[in-house]
Design a protein around this nucleic acid. Structure first.
Ligand SMILES: [Zn+2]
Ligand SMILES: [Zn+2]
Ligand SMILES: [Zn+2]
Ligand SMILES: [Zn+2]
Lengths: 135, 135
DNA sequence: CATGTCATGACAATCATTCTCAACAATGAT
DNA sequence: ATCATTGTTGAGAATGATTGTCATGACATG
């Protein structure tokens, strides 16, 4: 009941070759640039379906906009560079333990959690703040 | 340079008496219901200024909408009931250690983090799934 | 009270996301 | 291959939260 269309294939391929989180609008534009015209509504629908199926991860930036990225299946978290978008997937057992301990302590059930790290990677830090030669 | 106006006082008082996270639109309506008319734009401006000043916390729900809540000053996280909105503030030293360890391991600097827990509190779980008398 | 600013609010404008629905196309059967 | 079935697409409208505009209003101080 999930048909394989030109549009879905194109989007899946694009995501496979895109290491960083991208918005639906960006993906739509990237497809257009690549000569693969796919309607914006279709990009939204497809990327959301993929998110529900666990095929992509969703990240919300500060203003609430949703970004998508092809990720390893299964629960994990991210460390993202705020400058270049470089993303590291984190297994983070420590967070899992923390979450379940807190849930227990406060008598909550069905506790989900989100945890994301945003920083500046070595390359970007060097480029911005300068090399090791001092000021 | 921060003048004390009727509107800001009203909003501050309202937040003082509101234990759960609320949207700007909700706060605007609550003020109207209380006979305190405050423009929607003013609510947005004020609540954002308070957030920048660290006087309220911001939480983004699944669809990206921003919710605000008067919280203790300083960095902390939350455990929120998805049914009734009951909120517990968490000191969460475990998360702080995890975040800084990961930052180190991956050679990132200036790493910020977000971590939020959403679950169902005891009262709501009992109401929804039934009491302790079995199925 | 006068006066200088900052603050307010009604409304327009943005902008991401969702909805609508007629035209289309993937799939499976004939 | 042809066809019928039914999920899919896309252009544009609609939604809804948030932001911008700017003339008017109201703190705070002398
Ligand atoms: Zn970087
Ligand atoms: Zn986790
Ligand atoms: Zn509850
Ligand atoms: Zn923390």
């Amino acid at each position: 009941m999930q048909r394989m269309t030109r549009q879905r294939t194109a989007l899946a391929d694009l995501l496979d070759g895109t290491p960083d989180f991208r918005s639906a609008q960006q993906l739509h534009q990237m497809l257009k640039d690549a000569g693969q015209n796919v309607g914006l509504a279709t990009v939204y629908r497809t990327v959301q379906a993929m998110a529900e199926a666990g095929d992509v991860d969703v990240l919300r930036i500060e203003d609430g906009e949703a970004l998508y990225r092809r990720c390893a299946r299964g629960h994990h978290h991210h460390l993202v560079c705020r400058e270049c978008g470089k993303t590291v997937e984190l297994a983070g057992e420590a967070v899992e333990r923390w979450a379940s301990r807190i849930a227990h302590e406060h008598d909550f059930v069905d506790v989900d959690h989100t945890a994301e790290l945003v920083g500046t990677c070595r390359e970007c830090a060097t480029r911005i703040y300068g090399g090791g030669t001092g000021a």
